[in-house]
Structure formats: C-alpha cells, structure tokens
C-alpha cells in the first residue's frame, strides 16, 4: 500500500533554516543540509524547503543549496519560494530538486501551472496554497498570509488541478503556528474535491494531530516544521504511533 508521508518543512533564509511563528517572528534552527540529512536518517519520507523570504524580497531560492541537498540526501525533496517562471523551475530541477512548489506566482499567472506541467510533467508541480477562513468562506492568501485575494480556496484548487498541478500543499493560516492540530474539516472537504495528492500543513503540535489528520481527512501527507526542528516530536516515535493506529507508514 502507498504509505502516508511525514514531511519536515525547512524554511530557509540566506542558506539557514528558520521557522516563523505565524510566519513573523523568525528563529534560526540550523544548517539546511545537515538538518535534511538528520531527517532522512530519522525516517522522514520527503523534505520541503521553502524560501520564505523569496516572495517578499523577490529573491530566488539558491541553486547551490539545492545541489548540496541533492548530493547528500537519498530521499525526495521539493523546493519552493520565488519561482515565477519555467526557467526558475528548470534551474532547480537541474540542481536535483524532485518537485518545485509555486504559490503567489501561480495566483498572479495561473498559466504558469499549465506551462510547468507541460515542460516537466504534472508530478513536478506542487501548488502551495495558504488559506484563511473568512465569514464569506475560505480564501487564498499571499505573502505568508499578509495579503487576502478574491480567490475562493476550493475553486482555486479545483482550477489548479485542471491546469496540471500534480499535488496540493495546503496550509491553513488559521492553524499555522497554533499547535492546535490540522484543519481537518477543510482538508477533508478539499480531499474529496480533487484526485491529486494533498499535503496537509499548519497546526501540528503533537503526535496525535498527525493521527487525527490521517484518520479524519485521509490526506496523503502531513507537513510540519517547528515540532520537528525543536525535537518536540521525533519522527521514529511518530511513525511507531501511526503504525500502532493502523495507518500505513514506511518504517
């Protein structure tokens, strides 16, 4: 059976790993290559690197970091942040990235999803969506949740799937940094809406949150950052617990 994936997310800035509390207060948690290697040894199924400053400051994620990771790590990884053209994506793929994730560039130019899928195949294209619940519904937000858009989250994700997104990385901005669990209601709804894999993000605080997200929403993968970076949840313990609960994981 296809296993559920556990994905540590490494937010990077200037070649160092950082994690924001609700994306604002940044703290340094180490060297991304070293951290990536540690996670691969612990049994992480995949890694996501997000250059969190790239969109705001128009920086490109560093190709060199991508190469350094690909040289040392024997599990797949995704790089996101500041990718706005096919050329940007190609440089990262040639530097060893398995997938690239796009977010605000796709909102500004949805055709980018089609172009990337046509150039590299849908399996390389992860659409990252930051969503926030508003009285009128769920809406896509940009720049780490700072900017609201008119795009209704469910509508945007459905459209992205049709355009050629191969996977959705859905971050609940309401939950992110709260450690109160994933947004299982929204994730369940989105998961029933589409037929491409979903990575749940935002809200992981304890191991039970991962059990809940897989049991309740049946998403394909769950992503977290600080709980892994600060050792609050150890991946071998987490996977043992998931297996005990009858959830398919790679041990």
């Amino acid at each position: 059976m296809l296993s559920k994936r556990i994905i540590p997310c490494l937010d990077v800035k200037d070649g160092r790993t950082v994690k924001g509390i609700n994306f604002v207060d940044l703290r340094d948690a180490g060297d991304p290559v070293e951290l990536a290697w540690q996670y691969s040894q612990q049994g992480a199924d995949e890694l996501v690197f997000l250059d969190i400053t790239a969109t705001v400051e128009k920086r490109k994620t560093t190709i060199e970091m991508c190469k350094a990771v690909a040289r040392q790590i024997n599990i797949p990884f995704t790089i996101g942040g500041g990718i706005s053209t096919v050329h940007d994506a190609e440089a990262l793929l040639n530097a060893g990235a398995d997938k690239i994730s796009i977010n605000s560039a796709a909102v500004r130019n949805p055709q980018l999803i089609n172009d990337l899928a046509a150039a590299f195949g849908v399996q390389f294209v992860v659409l990252a969506v930051d969503t926030k619940h508003l009285p009128e519904g769920d809406f896509v937000h940009l720049n780490g949740g700072r900017i609201a858009t008119q795009l209704q989250t469910q509508h945007w994700i459905t459209q992205a799937e049709q355009r050629g997104a191969g996977e959705i990385l859905l971050t609940s901005m309401d939950k992110d940094g709260t450690k109160s669990g994933f947004d299982n209601v929204l994730l369940t709804q989105i998961n029933q809406l589409i037929s491409i894999p979903i990575i749940a993000s935002g809200g992981a605080g304890k191991a039970q949150d991962f059990v809940d997200v897989f049991e309740k929403s049946n998403v394909d993968a769950a992503l977290a950052a600080s709980v892994f970076h600060y050792g609050e949840i150890l991946i071998p313990d987490l996977k043992a617990m998931l297996k005990l609960k009858g959830i398919e994981v790679r041990m």
């Binding site: 059976m1 296809l2 296993s3 994936r5 199924d45 995949e46 849908v122 399996q123 191969g166 996977e167 037929s195 491409i196 894999p197 394909d220 993968a221 790679r250």
Partner: peptide, 15 residues
C-alpha cells in the same frame, strides 16, 4: 485508472 487508483500521479513510498 482514476476509478481504481483514486489519485494520479502515484506519488510516494509504496511497498
């Protein structure tokens, strides 16, 4: 076949 496999692409670790 998406009727059988539900999600395509098949992405991830399978035994």
């Amino acid at each position: 076949n998406t009727q059988l496999s539900k999600k395509v692409p098949h992405i991830g670790w399978n035994n």
